[in-house]
Amino acid sequence: MENTYGTLASWVYHLDKPIGRSFGDIEFYRERLSGCREPVLEPAAGNGRVLIPLLEAGIDIRGFDASEDMVAHCRRECEARGLPSPVDIARFDSFEYGTRFGAIIIPTGSFQLITEPVQALAVLKRFLDALLPGGRLILDLDALACLGETVTPARQWRTGEDILTLVESRVETSFQRQTTLSQLRYEHWRAGRLLASELQFFHLRLWGLLEFELALRSVGFGKVRVFGDYRADDAAEEGASIFTVEAVAPG
């Protein structure tokens, strides 16, 4: 169950982060992709929170996710809007397309779900190989300060007669490996009765900015820029909570 979004986890995600809900990222990515005439790929597209607004903006984008439940949410939302459903079930380490892309985007820090550095480097190389010459990899990373943050212990969402609850606890923090491991328990209640529960272990590896730039360059990426908190300029401030890294494939 590590880093796996099952039925309840996907439902809660969809309630908490519905299509189009922006943290500044949708506008930022739309602007960064505005001049891209080639296809765009979003790995870990989830329920389509970012993908669908970009699709509606006229960007030629497709995506994939490892969770069948997440992909089902995305496809339903596309169908409800009369849009194509360009989303597949695939994983970081095994996705394969018959075309190369002008950009690959990974908002919301999903790349941090890869907790082993060697595997992360292999995935970065797969991204590079999937890009056209001059194509860009654009992805979000949480600040290293998140290693010391506490989690919100309990949350709930109501939808009709249903109540979805989430109780989260930090199991382990490793400053040496730059990883966090959290336990998330999801429950589905109706009329005071527990209908279903689901346990998820959420494992993340955070990156230092210089460390990540060196990783990108080691697999062959060229120019690297860093943006802080979705600001349009690349003067990333020390106190930013989200950093967006943009790296260019060699031309």
Rank of each mutant, 00 (worst) to 15 (best):
S85P: 09
R81L: 12
L121K: 04
R190T: 11
K125I: 03
L141D: 05
F95V: 04
L181E: 02
A90R: 11
E116G: 00
L124F: 01
Y186D: 08
V171Q: 05
G148Q: 03
S174L: 05
E149Q: 14
V87T: 15
Y186P: 04
E96H: 15
G82I: 10
V87A: 15
V123P: 00
G135Y: 08
A143C: 13
E149I: 04
G109Y: 07
L144P: 14
Q178H: 10
L144N: 06
R126C: 01
G98T: 04
F175L: 02
T159Q: 15
H73M: 07
R91H: 13
Q178D: 03
C78M: 06
A154C: 11
R170F: 01
A80T: 05
G135L: 11
T108W: 15
L139V: 11
D88L: 11
T108E: 07
R170G: 00
L131R: 08
T159P: 06
S110M: 11
I163P: 03
T108V: 09
V87Q: 13
I114C: 00
E161A: 14
A120V: 00
Q119P: 01
E168F: 00
D129A: 12
L83P: 05
E116T: 00
L147D: 02
E149W: 15
Y97L: 06
H73G: 04
L131H: 12
D162K: 14
R185I: 09
D140L: 09
L164S: 08
V118Q: 13
F101D: 03
S110W: 09
D142F: 15
H73D: 09
F127Y: 09
L139R: 06
S169D: 03
Q156V: 03
V167T: 14
E77L: 07
R155W: 11
V171H: 01
I114N: 02
A130I: 04
T173G: 00
Q156C: 08
S94H: 09
R100D: 06
T159I: 10
R155P: 04
L139S: 07
L83D: 05
A143F: 03
T173L: 01
C78S: 07
V171P: 00
A103L: 04
L181W: 08
G134F: 10
R158C: 09
L181F: 09
I89S: 10
T179F: 03
T108S: 11
A90M: 13
D142E: 11
F95N: 04
L124Q: 01
